[in-house]
């Protein structure tokens, strides 16, 4: 898995680091970690509904923040658990834009083996960085 939960960072909440060879892969890894935080069996989340997400932010880290926040929004507003299937990021003069296709299905408590409801992405130690040919992010979720 391209993510790792970090016990040492947070006692009350959930911290993880995720990685990918591209920015797009990193965003997909972070979405996978978010899904795994809420459901013990993410593989059981079937791709029955497709959604498109479009976002724009001045900074790359805030683009990731908004992307994860969007997935949390759909969890409450549409009761959807979602995989990030494709992500495309473009850097323009003064902003980053994201186009993503995500898919999933309505929450099924039994099949998805639910864990904990995520309230929000926090900016506590929130970081996106590139080094040693790898994009990395650190995220703490409020649960």
């Amino acid at each position: 898995m391209p993510y790792r939960f970090q016990d040492e960072i947070s006692t009350a909440d959930i911290a993880f680091e995720a990685w990918g060879e591209t920015r797009e892969e990193l965003f997909i890894s972070c979405a996978a970690a978010l899904l795994r935080t809420m459901a013990e069996a993410p593989d059981q989340v079937e791709r029955r509904q497709l959604l498109a997400i479009r976002l724009e932010q001045e900074e790359l880290d805030m683009l990731l923040f908004s992307f994860l926040q969007e997935l949390i929004f759909y969890k409450d507003a549409r009761r959807l658990l979602l995989h990030a299937d494709k992500v495309h990021i473009e850097q323009r003069k003064d902003a980053f834009t994201l186009e993503a296709s995500v898919s999933g299905e309505q929450i099924d408590a039994g099949r998805h083996r639910l864990l904990v409801d995520v309230k929000a992405v926090t900016l506590h130690r929130f970081q996106v960085e590139f080094g040693e040919n790898l994009w990395k992010a650190s995220v703490v979720l409020d649960v």
């Binding site: 016990d7 959930i14 904990v116």
Partner: peptide
């Protein structure tokens, strides 16, 4: 107040 992480 928690003293142990959720994963632990």
């Amino acid at each position: 107040g928690r003293t142990m992480s959720r994963h632990q």
